[in-house]
Design a protein around this nucleic acid. Sequence first.
DNA 1: ACGGCGTAGACTGGATCCATGATGGCCGAG
DNA 2: CTCGGCCATCATGGATCCAGTCTACGCCGT
Lengths: 253, 253
Amino acid sequence: MAEVTATESTPSPVSTPRRADERDLVDSLVTVLQERINAGEIPAGSWLRQEALAKELGVSRMPVREALRELQARGSVELIANRGARVRLPSTRDIIEVYELHGLLQGHAGEAAAELITSQQLDRLSAAERLFRQAVEDLRTSDGDTTTAQRHWHEANTEFHAVIIEAGGNKHLAEMYENLHHKVPRNLTWIALGNDVRRLEKDAAEHAGILDAIGRGDSAATRTLLTEHVKRASDLLVRTVDEIGQDSPTRRR
Amino acid sequence: MAEVTATESTPSPVSTPRRADERDLVDSLVTVLQERINAGEIPAGSWLRQEALAKELGVSRMPVREALRELQARGSVELIANRGARVRLPSTRDIIEVYELHGLLQGHAGEAAAELITSQQLDRLSAAERLFRQAVEDLRTSDGDTTTAQRHWHEANTEFHAVIIEAGGNKHLAEMYENLHHKVPRNLTWIALGNDVRRLEKDAAEHAGILDAIGRGDSAATRTLLTEHVKRASDLLVRTVDEIGQDSPTRRR
DNA sequence: ACGGCGTAGACTGGATCCATGATGGCCGAG
DNA sequence: CTCGGCCATCATGGATCCAGTCTACGCCGT
């Protein structure tokens, strides 16, 4: 038929809609928005304007609406009738509760993982553990610019816990675990570590201990270590959030 | 979190859905469809036609589309590109995994509930326990018609576990628990009990034991009993599904 | 008669249009 | 000068329209 104007004159077709991974346009929008929210590009508490997002992403409001609906179901944003969508900003209580569940799920998955883990998965776990130590080194040798350390730590942390969850073998548990990250974004944990070398070392040491327990096939120890590990991270995060929570996280002018 | 300047633009952080019931049309559709799916009115594996649903519910296709998108995020249906929405039909593996999480979450909530439960909640728990025994009586005195027994048992079971989850105090855990029911509907459990008086008696006795443990404030026992209780229900359900799964899993022509 | 190909139908997915509800500013009265 | 109500503006929510795509049926060729 007639050449559609939008064929190649599209301003910015989101990213790569042709990826076989994503079923349709809405899913790619969900992914993009979720990443932006988790990365903090879209600050918590801010409004998501359908028109603005549609224009920016080069689509109409319709797929944006559906994407927002899905993000609401995930718990990433809240929809207010006739008002719009707002990025949910987790309260201290939310953080405590979500991390409690993190510990519960990871402890459970780890207990199973200690028995079920494959050698490939164990290798990935070791690699992640090395990356933790690398991140410590990055931070130690960095002068001001901590982005590399953060990137390495973030990669290591994501991979490490993902492998444990995966090795646990319960796909629905994995899904719930992912959902938790939609409620309290991963990057918050890094903020809590606060570029403190000693804290990071302690964090790395805990991961090494967990790796060791899994390597020994010690289910009980794995569960305990994981639960305590998450608990410590939670306490640290809550303390940090309470401290910096004094000034308004919403935009000031 | 500190109150931001008197402008009410950022009132509450995250946890005030304002109204728990229905925010808008889409939410009411989600509720209706979810209930129909859980009740089995819409059989698993069947297609949900947007046009048909819209006409039947007296709305246009648009809110139906958004409702389906939300049901997909919940895991109740699956969306296939350019094909439509289909009610997901849980596999045996799904059931095993989901019930494993049921046990994990309920055990955890129960452990906390044993210490935190209020007297009102304990009353509700007792009432539910009585309703279980009533259901046993209903079934025993019924001749053929088991709907009353089912209704009572269903009410009792829903209330009993809901109270425990609620008493546990973790709202995110409660939300996850709800989500699990979207993946494996509640009514499946009744099918597994299969109108068998002895099984029902055993089930009621287990609930009585749990109630007793909570009443004594015995956290450890509560957790153990709950975990085992769910495990037994899971095993029974899996066995039942496997048995009846022999005849047409997919309808033959 | 059987299998492959082409076409018609139907349903989903995206875009545009309109109505409704909310917000914020402006004006008038006390 | 301040408070309250009215109105304009804007964003969301719902409906309708159009295009793309998958399926299924039927026809034709071997």
